[in-house]
């Protein structure tokens, strides 16, 4: 009772304060003219990673000039490749094999050095292992607050991002002079990779010491589309029973559809699939046109990662499975019969 009274008194006292203090800071057009974005591109073995191009789309939405940044051995050729991407004004490259693996310990000082030289106001990177690894360190070095995983841009300092695993949407306004942003790839379409003509320029290299050493990486290789940006995803769950069955049924179906393969957390935990394939809160967020799940009855917690899919199709032999309550299209049948049949029919087309 008392606490309720206290709260309302506080609220009353606060009201005049709020009125004298405008909620939104007015936007000055002069600011947007001074605005300049640095998009950090990711390269791997001398190849541009297309998922990092979402940063350029975000830069276009911000307005102002866009500069791209790339480093590593063979950065020059990557820069030439990226110069064709529409919207980029200038590309800064740093040629050195020390930056091949994108270790944040030396990549962050390098980036900071180039930011200071170029006087950029917005630093944008994609949400990938590389971006998530690098940007917090850059933000700390610049004494700025990072804004992670944004899904849309309201204005040059106001951004929208999901919080609490996508259960709430937060609109956040940053007052930092340099804004460090990571963008969600599925929320920003990739720019056109033809028709642009950017100038290519060499950046400064502080040659920072790296206390960590790259030893090795163990990557699941696949020539299928990337799970994070695929337009179709087929996904398997515990209903597939074993790793052998998963490997026997899912890849042919994925190939027939031209889709990426995903897996539910239950399937990953049981060792059916690699953990890089996991879709869901703890795994990857996907937003394909078609999401086909086979052998997933519940696991809805973990399917929250695909809630933005256009069409959800489900195959399950149990007509009472809760997945049918959220799927747009459902097929009640044994997946060990229907998946090969579906694969055959798709191939015959």
């Amino acid at each position: 009772m008392f606490s309720v009274a206290r709260r309302s008194v506080l609220r009353q006292a606060r009201t005049p304060l709020r009125l004298s203090h405008p909620v939104t800071v007015p936007q000055y057009s002069a600011l947007s003219r001074l605005l300049s974005t640095l998009a950090v591109l990711e390269q791997k073995d001398g190849k541009l990673q297309n998922s990092s191009l979402a940063g350029i789309t975000a830069g276009t939405k911000l307005g102002g000039s866009i500069t791209a940044f790339v480093a590593g051995s063979g950065a020059r050729s990557v820069a030439d490749e990226a110069a064709k991407v529409k919207g980029i004004e200038k590309i800064i490259y740093v040629e050195s094999d020390a930056y091949d693996k994108g270790l944040p310990e030396n990549f962050a000082p390098l980036l900071v050095e180039n930011i200071k030289k170029g006087g950029f106001t917005h630093i944008v990177a994609g949400v990938s292992a590389f971006g998530k690894n690098l940007m917090p360190r850059v933000a700390a070095l610049l004494d700025s607050q990072q804004i992670s995983d944004i899904t849309s841009i309201e204005s040059e300092d106001t951004f929208v991002r999901p919080i609490y695993a996508g259960n709430a949407i937060l609109t956040v306004q940053s007052s930092d002079s340099i804004k460090i942003i990571t963008v969600r790839g599925t929320a920003f379409p990739a720019p056109e990779v033809e028709g642009g003509s950017a100038t290519v320029e060499e950046g400064v290299d502080p040659k920072a010491e790296c206390p960590t050493e790259w030893i090795s990486e163990d990557l699941a290789k696949s020539d299928r589309p990337d799970l994070g940006s695929a337009s179709k995803v087929v996904s398997g769950g515990r209903g597939l029973k074993s790793k052998e069955e998963f490997d026997r049924l899912m890849p042919p179906l994925a190939d027939a559809l031209g889709a990426a393969i995903g897996a539910s957390r239950a399937a990953v935990d049981s060792g059916f699939a690699d953990n890089s394939l996991q879709v869901g809160q703890t795994g990857k967020n996907v937003a394909p046109q078609l999401y086909l799940c086979a052998g997933i009855s519940g696991a809805i917690q973990h399917l929250a990662g695909m809630k933005d899919s256009k069409v959800i199709a489900a195959i399950n032999k149990d007509p009472e499975a809760p997945i049918f309550q959220v799927a747009d299209v459902g097929l009640v049948s044994d997946l060990f019969n229907s998946v090969p049949e579906l694969t055959e029919k798709l191939k015959a087309q």
Binding site: A299, I300, Q301, A304, Q325, V326
Partner: peptide
């Protein structure tokens, strides 16, 4: 666990309907 799943089901169902 089932309780959490049902919560998620409601959330997902509502989210997709609104969408």
């Amino acid at each position: 666990f089932v309780k959490k799943e049902i919560e998620a089901l409601y959330f997902l169902k509502r989210y997709r309907t609104l969408r």
